[in-house]
Structures are given as C-alpha cells and as structure tokens.
Design a protein around this nucleic acid. Structure first.
Lengths: 230, 230
DNA sequence: CCAAAAGTGTTATGCTTACACCCATGC
DNA sequence: GCATGGGTGTAAGCATAACACTTTTGG
C-alpha cells in the first residue's frame, strides 16, 4: 500500500472539473443560474457555474465550493448528474466534468444575494426554456438536468426542495406544471398528493390575498429529507 | 482559444479511471465479472475490471478498452453508472473513477472466452449476491449497479440485453425473478409483456426438451435497440 | 403413462381520469 | 357585489393481482 510502489504520475492525466445545474422557481418559471465567463475560452459566454476539482476535496465538496465562490450560493440540494468526457469538449486540453444537479428553495431566492467573483463577471437567473448560447457542452448538461428534474419530480418527493417550508397545494402543483410544461387537473393532483401521505396541514394560511386564503402545508420529514422511490 | 493562454497544468490533478460492472445470467444466477488483481494495492483481491483513462480516449472508449484488455470481452451493452470520487478510495493517490454498467447476452457467455491479462491473474464470474471481498470501494459500485439494473428492468426494455436473440417467455421472466429476488405470476407476466408490444413470436420452438417445447420470441427492434421509458 | 415445463381466462380490486360548482377574502 | 383563486366528489375506464387446469413433449 506504499504510495511509492506505483507511479501514477506516469499516466498523462485529463483535468477534472465539476459543473452545477442549479434550478429554482422564479416568476412562475423554472430558472437556471448561469455565470458570464471572464476568461477564454468562451470569454463573455454564459456558462454553468463550476471549476476544477482540487486534489484534496471530494467531488461534492468541489461543487459546493464552486457554487459559493462563483455565485455566493450555499446550502442547496445537490446530487450527481452525469460525467461528460468527450475528447474535445474543452478547446484548451482534455477536461472531464462531473456535473451536479442542484435545487434551491424559492424562499432562499430572496435571502441569498448572488454576486459575481474572480471567474465570473456576472451571475444571473435564466428561464430554463429560453437560455442564451452556452459555453462548452453546457447545453447538453442542462438538457440532462431537465430530464433528471422531471424524472425525480415524477418518482420522488424532490419537488419540496424547490418550495419554502410551508407551501400551498397550488404552489406545489405549479412546480409540476412548470417542469412538465403541461397542466394537471386540480382535484386529481390534490387527491394524489394527499394520498401519498407525505405532507401535512400547518395551522397557517396565506395572508393578505384578495381571494380565499389557502391552507399552508409542510413536508413530513420523518424518514429522510427526500423519500427516494428509486 | 489558444491552448497556451491557460495553463491547466498548474492544477494538481486527480487521476481518472473507469470501472465496469458487467452483468450476465449464468446458471440461473445474476453474475458479475471480476478480475483478481496482480499488483498492489489490493494485490490478490477480486476487483471490477477497469483502469486509467488515456488522454486521447473518451470515457466510454476507455471502458470498452479495459474490458477487452483485462477480460477479452467486447460488444456488450454499456452505459455510465456513477462517478465515485471520495478522497481515500485509492490508497496510492487521489483517484476518481467513472463507473460503467454493462450487460452481456447469455448467448455470448459461450462464445467469448474470458482470459486474464497483464493486470489480472484471473478472470471469473461470481454470483452477484455472493461476492468475495472486493478491492477499493468496488462493493459500493456493485451495489449501485444492482440498483440501476433493477430500475432499468422495471422501466425500460433492457432485459433483452441479457438474453440471446431468440428467447422464451420463461427465460425472460427468469431474468426479472433473478434480479428482483422474487417470483412473478406466469400468466400476469406474459399478459404484461405481450401487451407492451415489444416482442414478437418467431417460427421457432425450443428443441430436444423432455417436455412441451416453448415458443421462441424476439425483440422488435424498430425504433432503437432499447426503448427508454425515461 | 409419467414427469416436466408450456400455455391459457376470468374476476375483483384499486388507481387514474374526466369533469363543474360553491367558498372565502379584498376591494 | 364582484373578481380572484381555493376548495371539494363521483362515476367510468383501465391496469393490476390473484388464482388452477390442460397441453405437449421425451423417456
């Protein structure tokens, strides 16, 4: 097990990065956070936040660090998405990127101030279905992220990660409608969600609305934060 | 876009490997192919086939190459599984591995002769649910592979990749029973499979069996080789 | 004729879908 | 009182699950 017995440096190694597809709901749209690149390659192109993995940090730690460094955002839900390793995805040299899928509660949209950094001249939310031209192969990564989001919404309880702690059933339904680009029947949606027995009424209602106030629900977090169906 | 404008070598880079979880059905069991390591670390431990990614090959090409080099197996179904990057998963140095999920038709079990190589002193199939102690974090990778297999069997038509071109409905059912460790009702299974309209009768039947011969079916490969439900 | 696996239908149950009106609030 | 979104039930159709006997072959 002596490190000297095996010279791994004899291999010409690819570089390794992480990139994060961070979704949130903003203005009734599914949004993605992008940064504007300060440096070549793809200078002044919009790109996913991300960067090189350091030798002494895990992949997930790298994703968290890059998100903080480049956008000032932390404490989001994060899971690995896919690893992209085509030969010419970066014009500089061989770069493999491990992409991450992230969700931010719409509650935090107000609390966290996104801000640019050394690597990014701007940071901005974009409508997922109306993105600018992206650097590298980031369009592929985003598409992969949308697929994952839809799948996870359908088969897991991940949707709650996009909502504040207390939410109305209409807000929850909206997330599904935004992600799937289609309308669901209100009665059937409610029946289905309530039958899953994953959320409970709070004693609160929405305030200061010029119509009948809605019951606020919260997610029953007994087992884990997210109940994985798979 | 000049490669010289950006010195990526200033980053201390992790090493990158691929590892392959190759499943096949053998003796009515779900089997995984393992190699016995010739070198430290984990000398003489069983491990997943795999190795370092070369600078000029894609991740998938690396997986294919390693599978051929280490086991003499080629032309299997291959898809990316997950990227494992914990800090101490390799005692030598920082190594990140992109794992691949592979399926081999039981037809090929007879045709392809597995053989050891420079890196492996032995190559052998093992019952997935009765594996020896594995090198590195390969146990985690195998578990992840089993999850993916079950999921894919449930939601896609990937099961056909484990069968020869023509197969009986009983053989198909067996794959599901082996992977899920449970029995399914014969009539309901057949009804379900046939209603999906994905397979068709051939004119052939099983030969030389001391009981009623079974119809052989084949997969209708119209759209693509695998119909992804997701 | 016996052993062994192939093949085949019906019923009950639960889930999904389609669909329309009254309720509570602010202005 | 009116505009706005919140809240509710029922019936039809469809998919799933449970269940047992007959058929075809080799020996």
């Amino acid at each position: 097990m002596d490190k000297k017995e095996y010279d791994v440096t004899k291999y010409d190694r690819p570089s390794l990065t992480v990139d994060i597809v961070l979704f949130s709901i903003k203005n009734n749209c599914l949004n993605i956070l992008l940064i504007k690149r300060k440096e070549v390659p793809f200078k002044d192109f919009w790109a996913l936040p991300g960067g090189f993995v350091k030798i002494n940090e895990s992949l997930e730690d790298a994703a968290k660090r890059e998100l903080i460094e480049e956008t000032n955002i932390k404490d989001v839900y994060l899971e690995q998405l896919y690893t992209f390793g085509n030969l010419n995805r970066d014009p500089r040299t061989r770069v493999i990127t491990v992409s991450y899928f992230a969700l931010m509660s719409s509650k935090d949209l107000g609390n966290i101030k996104i801000k640019p950094s050394t690597d990014a001249s701007e940071v901005q939310w974009f409508d997922t279905f109306n993105l600018p031209k992206l650097a590298f192969d980031h369009k592929n990564i985003v598409e992969y992220g949308i697929k994952r989001l839809r799948w996870k919404l359908e088969y897991t309880t991940i949707g709650f990660k996009l909502l504040p702690e207390n939410f109305t059933l209409t807000e929850l339904q909206m997330i599904y409608e935004i992600a799937f680009h289609k309308k669901f029947d209100k009665r059937n949606f409610r029946k289905k969600i309530l039958s899953l027995n994953l959320i409970e009424e709070t004693k609160e209602k929405t305030k200061d609305v010029s119509h009948r106030p809605a019951k606020l629900y919260s997610f029953k977090k007994k087992i884990g934060d997210i109940i994985e169906i798979i």
